[in-house]
Simulated scan of single mutants.
Amino acid sequence: MLKDQLRDFIDSLLERGHVCDDDVAMLQGEILSEGITSRLEVESLLALDRLVTAVEGWGTALTRLVADFVVWKRAPHGAVSNDDALWLATLLEISGPSPNAMAIAYAILDEAGHVDVALLDFIMRGRQQARLSQIAA
């Protein structure tokens, strides 16, 4: 279940269609000051990311929040299990390897002591797609 404050925050951003610097500060300082606490919160924020435009700080904040949750708040701490890697790779793949999705995957790879191959596969597909896009351009 989503916290009411986070649900209201997401609803207002969807209505407005844009995330500004004040929104990022509110998310980090008030709404998720203790970080993300559930998969549903991650799923909701990643869905929001696909639907709105945002200031640059949004991607940085989203990346940090998701990476901290996956690496440090899920067991085993400091590693990414097969279950979490499959779940997250599936979420990140929904709209293709966006810059924020790739940043999240790389942040987790940098921070975790062990990352399951499912997340590594997502990174490789994203890199391949980026290479193919450059060739086609």
Score class of each variant (00 low, 15 high):
1 M>H: 07
2 L>T: 03
3 K>F: 02
4 D>G: 12
5 Q>N: 14
8 D>W: 13
8 D>A: 11
8 D>F: 14
10 I>P: 02
11 D>N: 11
12 S>V: 03
12 S>I: 03
15 E>F: 08
15 E>Q: 07
15 E>S: 12
16 R>K: 10
17 G>W: 10
18 H>F: 12
18 H>P: 02
20 C>D: 15
22 D>A: 09
24 V>R: 06
25 A>I: 04
26 M>R: 15
26 M>L: 12
27 L>W: 03
27 L>A: 03
28 Q>P: 04
29 G>M: 04
30 E>C: 05
31 I>S: 04
32 L>N: 11
33 S>G: 06
33 S>K: 15
34 E>G: 07
35 G>I: 00
35 G>E: 00
36 I>D: 04
37 T>V: 09
37 T>A: 15
37 T>I: 07
39 R>Q: 13
40 L>Q: 15
41 E>F: 00
42 V>I: 07
43 E>R: 12
43 E>P: 08
43 E>W: 04
44 S>A: 15
45 L>Y: 00
46 L>T: 00
46 L>Q: 01
48 L>R: 10
49 D>R: 08
49 D>E: 07
49 D>I: 01
49 D>W: 03
50 R>C: 05
50 R>N: 05
50 R>E: 07
51 L>P: 11
54 A>D: 02
54 A>I: 05
54 A>Q: 06
56 E>Q: 07
57 G>A: 11
58 W>D: 01
58 W>K: 05
58 W>G: 01
59 G>E: 12
60 T>A: 14
60 T>H: 15
63 T>R: 13
64 R>N: 14
64 R>D: 14
64 R>H: 14
65 L>R: 00
68 D>N: 15
69 F>G: 05
69 F>Y: 15
72 W>H: 09
72 W>A: 05
73 K>R: 14
73 K>S: 12
73 K>T: 11
76 P>Y: 03
76 P>I: 04
77 H>F: 14
77 H>P: 14
81 S>E: 02
82 N>C: 09
84 D>T: 03
84 D>M: 06
85 A>N: 01
86 L>I: 06
86 L>R: 11
90 T>I: 02
92 L>P: 02
94 I>D: 02
95 S>C: 13
96 G>H: 10
97 P>I: 05
97 P>F: 08
98 S>M: 06
99 P>E: 07
103 A>H: 08
103 A>T: 02
105 A>F: 08
106 Y>H: 15
106 Y>S: 12
107 A>C: 06
108 I>N: 12
110 D>K: 09
110 D>N: 10
112 A>D: 00
112 A>V: 00
113 G>Q: 05
115 V>L: 04
118 A>Y: 11
120 L>P: 04
121 D>Y: 09
122 F>E: 00
123 I>W: 11
123 I>R: 06
124 M>N: 07
126 G>S: 07
129 Q>R: 15
131 R>I: 10
132 L>D: 09
133 S>V: 06
134 Q>N: 11
134 Q>C: 09
134 Q>E: 10
135 I>R: 13
136 A>K: 13
137 A>M: 13
137 A>N: 12
137 A>E: 11
